[in-house]
């Protein structure tokens, strides 16, 4: 304990540190459930429009670069691994190792947003924008009905997901600072674990977004 700095004491209204950790995790999973429900609204919009405009989705998705989407999938999967290893190191009292894994996770998250930036600027340049901002008039969409709807859904889904990545980076930075300060040990690493759960959910949502947006069959 001495190496890890301060000793952690659970709040007095909990019977034990474990009860406190369980309560915190229960709250986090409940929050993650609301996240699933929030995203489901956009997934519903996707499903509804794809079921009525199948040909349009097929034509419109070809303007997305599946290689960039695939690259971002691999980047997020790697970041999920390093996040899980960061939690594992915290469980084992390995503070420096945990900080290292958290830094790698942050770098992956940053790389994801950089790739996303290039994708967005390309689409903004072409005018492949949601709703009334849509100006693209390329030959791909000859006889295709309402391709602007696909890009509306694309920007809302990836945009909401992108904000989650951004917020995840803030949360991981907070955890990283607290790790280097010596707040966590094998006795108390709940915040690391909870931020990990959040980060894996962000990865999980992208796992569905990749085939649904970039690889429409």
């Amino acid at each position: 304990m001495a190496i890890m700095g301060r000793e952690y004491h659970h709040a007095h209204h909990f019977p034990s540190a474990r009860a406190e950790a369980d309560a915190a995790k229960l709250g986090m999973w409940t929050f993650l459930a609301t996240e699933v429900l929030m995203f489901s609204g956009l997934f519903m919009a996707y499903t509804a429009y794809r079921s009525t405009h199948a040909e349009m989705f097929k034509a419109a998705h070809q303007l997305l670069d599946w290689r960039l989407g695939g690259l971002n999938t691999l980047v997020l999967i790697l970041s999920s691994l390093t996040m899980a290893l960061g939690v594992r190191s915290a469980q084992q009292n390995k503070r420096e190792q945990s900080a290292f894994y958290l830094v790698v996770t942050l770098l992956c998250a940053g790389a994801f947003l950089v790739v996303k930036y290039f994708e967005y600027t390309h689409k903004i340049h072409l005018g492949l924008l949601p709703g009334g901002y849509y100006t693209y008039n390329g030959p791909e969409f000859a006889g295709i009905d309402s391709p602007h709807i696909f890009f509306g859904i694309y920007f809302l889904l990836t945009g909401l997901h992108g904000f989650h990545v951004l917020f995840g980076m803030i949360a991981i930075t907070w955890i990283l600072l607290r790790t280097t300060r010596g707040d966590f040990s094998s006795k108390y690493y709940t915040p690391v674990e909870l931020v990990g759960l959040y980060w894996h959910l962000v990865d999980l949502i992208w796992i569905y977004l990749f085939p649904l947006l970039y690889l429409v069959g």
């Binding site: 999920s80 691994l81 996040m83 899980a84 990990g196 759960l197 894996h200 959910l201 990865d203 999980l204 796992i207 569905y208 990749f210 085939p211 649904l212």
Partner: peptide
Amino acid sequence: LVATIKGALVVLYFM
């Protein structure tokens, strides 16, 4: 189906 297998791996082991 493939996405759900991936998701299950993330949820069961990483989470």
